[in-house]
Computed example of a mutant assay.
Amino acid sequence: MDESVVVTPDWLAAHLEDPKLRVVDVRDPWEYDGIGHVPGAVSIPFDSYRDESDVDRGTLPGAAAFADLLSESGIAPDDTIVAYDDTHGVFAARFVLTALEYGHDDVRLLDGDYSAWNRDHETTSEVSELEATTYDPDPLAREESPLVGFEAVEDALERDAVFVDTREEHEFEDARLPSAVRFDWREVVDDETRRLKPEGELEALLAEYGITPDREIVLYCNTARRISHTYVVLRALGYEDVAFYEGSLTEWLANDGEVESGEVE
């Protein structure tokens, strides 16, 4: 796995003293305070970087709001960020995607979650003292961003793209994009270790669904949370042609996009 995208607990433990490393805990504040956290981690709860009112970019908070959040958390644009949660990384992956979209060059996902870290490494309840920064965001241009909108998805339906739906089976059967394949985002996680499965196993698993590096991939779910995890995993595996439908099925249905329903034979 590409360490510039996903890092192991051992990697994080070895770099905790790096003054340019910032560890971000996206769990609820009561978990951060009451259960403990990775030493030096700052609390940036999931809801703080999600904005349902942002009609332009779906649930993204907006560049200025996200920059204010990072500034308050003592994070600078040239810091290395490692994000984690306690839900196999799905909420932390959303933070990674958000930071990338707003131009942060070095942001990574912890392979596993807090429970995986807690098995072999030290935790603390001490809250780190934060020194605010002035964070100037540099959002990706539309042509650089992996995020795509309704019209781009319509165009991709006319090509040989693989549409990957990461939702639950009942959601998939209720309504899905035409020709989509259902891939449960949790399939990439080893239930026992709580970490990602080995690289070779992941590649074989994805290939079973036709999700291969030589294909154009379009990811969607309902509100773009679950696809964040799949997107990060694909990037870590070296996939290059991966589009992220930020509006997902919520936007698609609102625009009367064509859908299929029912069980897949």
Rank of each mutant, 00 (worst) to 15 (best):
R94Y: 02
F95H: 02
V96Q: 01
L97K: 02
L97A: 13
T98R: 07
T98D: 03
A99G: 13
L100S: 12
L100M: 11
L100N: 06
E101K: 04
Y102Q: 02
G103K: 00
G103M: 01
G103C: 02
H104M: 07
H104G: 03
D105F: 07
R108S: 09
L109T: 01
L110E: 09
L110I: 14
D111R: 11
G112Y: 09
G112N: 12
S115A: 12
A116E: 05
A116S: 15
N118K: 14
N118L: 09
D120L: 03
H121L: 12
E122F: 04
T124Q: 10
T124V: 05
S125T: 15
S125A: 10
S125M: 07
E126W: 04
S128G: 13
E129M: 09
E131V: 14
E131Y: 12
A132F: 00
T133C: 04
T134A: 13
T134F: 07
Y135N: 00
Y135F: 11
P139S: 00
L140D: 01
R142T: 12
R142F: 05
S145F: 01
S145D: 07
P146K: 07
F150P: 08
A152W: 13
A152S: 14
A152H: 12
V153T: 03
E154R: 15
D155V: 11
D155S: 10
E158Y: 00
E158N: 14
E158L: 12
E158C: 06
R159F: 00
R159G: 14
R159S: 15
D160V: 04
D160I: 06
D160F: 11
A161T: 09
A161N: 08
F163G: 13
F163P: 08
V164F: 10
D165L: 03
D165N: 12
T166A: 14
E168P: 00
E168F: 02
E169S: 09
H170M: 04
E171S: 14
E171R: 11
F172V: 11
F172Y: 15
F172C: 08
F172P: 10
E173Q: 14
D174L: 11
D174A: 10
A175H: 09
A175G: 11
L177C: 07
P178E: 14
P178V: 08
S179E: 15
A180G: 06
A180W: 01
R182N: 07
R182H: 05
D184M: 06
W185E: 08
W185L: 07
R186D: 08
E187N: 08
E187A: 04
E187V: 04
V188S: 13
V188R: 10
D190N: 14
D191G: 10
D191W: 06
E192H: 08
E192A: 15
T193Q: 13
T193C: 03
T193N: 09
R194Y: 03
R195Y: 06
L196R: 04
L196P: 10
L196W: 09
K197R: 15
P198Y: 00
E199M: 05
E199H: 05
E199R: 15
E199W: 04
G200H: 12
G200Y: 06
E201G: 12
L202T: 09
L205H: 07
L205K: 14
L206E: 06
A207F: 00
E208S: 08
G210M: 01
I211Y: 02
I211K: 10
I211W: 01
T212N: 02
T212Q: 04
P213E: 03
D214I: 09
R215I: 01
N222T: 13
T223N: 08
T223C: 01
A224I: 02
A224R: 04
A224V: 03
